[in-house]
């Protein structure tokens, strides 16, 4: 019987903390890539929120930028209104996005499959349109800028080189990743995967399936809102593009690229995507978007389960018997 009990393994958390520490030490070595890596962190957090929705709960979305945008605009409104403390601003913005998610959940969860995709798409487009029209509030196509958050923890000012922004984004991502990891292994995450695999069977266990999915939707929206707020605070601006369909599509591409269902997929996908985009746009200023598309397609064709899935396959043969789907 005792072999059924899972023992705590410290190897993974320690390795992950080591990677985080190395990344945190990077500004000591070079400050060249900080802005780019901050973008990676923001996109990784946004992608992680979609992984919670798609990879765990099995809810499809083509409009997830709605929550990213709500978080971004909320953070900007707060700073412009004089609430300049960044951490509380971030949390409030995430909370607002989460509430928006809770409000939209009944609409999205009524549908399934293509209809669900359609509902998320339309909600995203409507919000984009509203923000575009509401110039007085959102600045319309010009977006919002000219706000500045006060120093993080009252100590670290957002500096021109982006050192503070980078470390702040890294910390937020690290905390959210840890929370996601806990949630994923906990009863809640397991129940979400159960619902994705067989909702009728979950109901037969007594699970209030609709309520669980609504919770997942709100959590995912809150995390997307945190990502949006993080972008607003670290770049001190919000563009209308934060709410765009392109951003919704991009985050889905990044998730598929990294690997749906994997814990590291969002992180790997975001890093590969942002770095490849930067590299290709320098290499071929005119055609980089085409090259990027080609590269993404090639990766997904070679690795249908994303880069994380590919890495797991390389690593798995020896570890398979021991760890089952705990990656």
């Amino acid at each position: 019987m005792s072999d059924l009990h899972s023992s705590i393994s410290w190897r993974r958390p320690v390795a992950e903390a080591a990677v985080l520490a190395a990344l945190a030490a990077l500004p000591l070595v070079s400050q060249d890539y900080l802005l780019l890596l901050t973008q990676v962190a923001v996109l990784a957090l946004f992608t992680l929120s979609l992984e919670l929705l798609v990879g765990q709960a099995g809810i499809l979305s083509l409009g997830h930028a709605a929550f990213f945008g709500i978080g971004a605009y909320a953070a900007a409104f707060l700073a412009l209104a004089g609430w300049e403390e960044p951490i509380s601003g971030l949390l409030i913005a995430g909370g607002i996005a989460g509430l928006a998610g809770l409000a939209m959940a009944p609409l999205v969860l009524r549908a399934s499959g293509l209809t669900q995709l359609m509902v998320t798409l339309c909600l995203g487009l409507m919000l984009h349109e509203a923000a575009s029209r509401g110039r007085d509030w959102t600045g319309g196509d010009d977006g919002l800028s000219g706000f500045l958050n006060s120093p993080v923890l009252g100590l670290f000012e957002f500096d021109l080189f982006g050192v503070t922004g980078y470390l702040y984004a890294l910390a937020v991502l690290g905390i959210c990743f840890a929370a996601f990891t806990l949630m994923r292994a906990a009863p809640f995450g397991t129940a979400l995967r159960g619902i994705r695999q067989n909702p009728v069977r979950m109901a037969a266990l007594g699970t209030p399936v609709g309520a669980r999915l609504a919770q997942a939707y709100a959590l995912s929206a809150a995390m997307a809102g945190l990502a949006g707020a993080l972008m607003a605070e670290t770049t001190q601006s919000v563009a209308l593009e934060a709410l765009s369909f392109q951003r919704s599509a991009e985050v889905l591409i990044v998730l598929i690229l990294g690997g749906v269902g994997s814990r590291y997929g969002a992180l790997i996908g975001a890093a590969v995507y942002v770095l490849a985009r930067d590299w290709l746009s320098a290499l071929s200023p005119e055609y980089w978007l085409g090259w990027l598309g080609l590269l993404m397609m090639a990766v997904v064709l070679v690795a249908p389960r994303g880069i994380a899935g590919l890495l797991a396959r390389v690593r798995l043969p020896r570890a398979r018997a021991k760890t089952e789907d705990r990656a």
């Binding site: 806990l182 906990a186 009863p187 809640f188 129940a191 669980r212």
Partner: peptide, 11 residues
């Protein structure tokens, strides 16, 4: 307990 988010199910 199916909405708990902190402790792994296996623990």
């Amino acid at each position: 307990r199916s909405a708990r988010m902190l402790r792994p199910l296996g623990r």
